[in-house]
């Protein structure tokens, strides 16, 4: 889904109108768009440029600076596994194998159905309960292979419920 279609364009405008027409709102706008659409496509960049007056190239420069923002469409659930030292020495590699095997994709990829993306992140401040990962806005620490599978299942279930109109769990 690109932000160019009509309904989506309205939603984009709504996000923009929630912010002042000011350069200091650039990052908040981009964060909101990224959260809502899962990425920031070129049409959205043009609209942000029109709204804030910031040239598209500079907007792109800002997007590429932050690891949570992206132009590439990510999955509905973005899994960000911490790879920094405390998580690393607490068995991160095993969690990597579980995630890749369970989802059938490698890190940096998105499942064909667009549900899950796998990414690494640097320290997320969960060093006291490693290994840890973020899934969208939620944080999960103390990961074991078993726990990872349970978490994934719960998300798959919520996706299933969402699809058939039972309402999301998210």
């Amino acid at each position: 889904m690109t932000t160019g279609t009509r309904a989506v364009a309205d939603e984009l405008q709504e996000i923009l109108l929630n912010h002042e027409k000011d350069r200091t709102q650039l990052l908040p706008i981009l964060v909101d768009i990224n959260k809502y659409f899962g990425h920031i496509d070129s049409n959205a960049i043009i609209e942000v440029s029109r709204y804030t007056g910031v040239p598209i190239g500079e907007i792109h420069g800002v997007i590429t600076f932050y690891s949570f923002l992206g132009q590439k469409k990510r999955g509905r659930f973005v899994i960000r596994l911490c790879r920094t030292i405390s998580c690393d020495i607490a068995g991160k590699d095993q969690i990597v194998r579980v995630l890749e095997k369970e989802l059938g994709i490698h890190f940096g990829e998105t499942t064909d159905d667009g549900v899950f993306s796998l990414e690494y992140t640097n320290c997320i401040g969960m060093c006291d309960n490693p290994p840890a990962m973020l899934i969208n806005d939620k944080v999960y620490g103390g990961l074991t292979p078993e726990r990872v599978v349970d978490i994934l299942d719960s998300f798959k279930l919520s996706e299933y419920q969402d699809m058939f109109g039972y309402g999301g769990v998210e």
Partner: peptide, 21 residues
């Protein structure tokens, strides 16, 4: 809200980030 950049903890970088750069 930040968007994933360690360097923004540096106060000058943090301000650049808030200023839309």
């Amino acid at each position: 809200l930040g968007a994933g950049a360690y360097v923004c903890g540096e106060e000058f970088a943090l301000i650049s980030s808030m200023n839309g750069y």
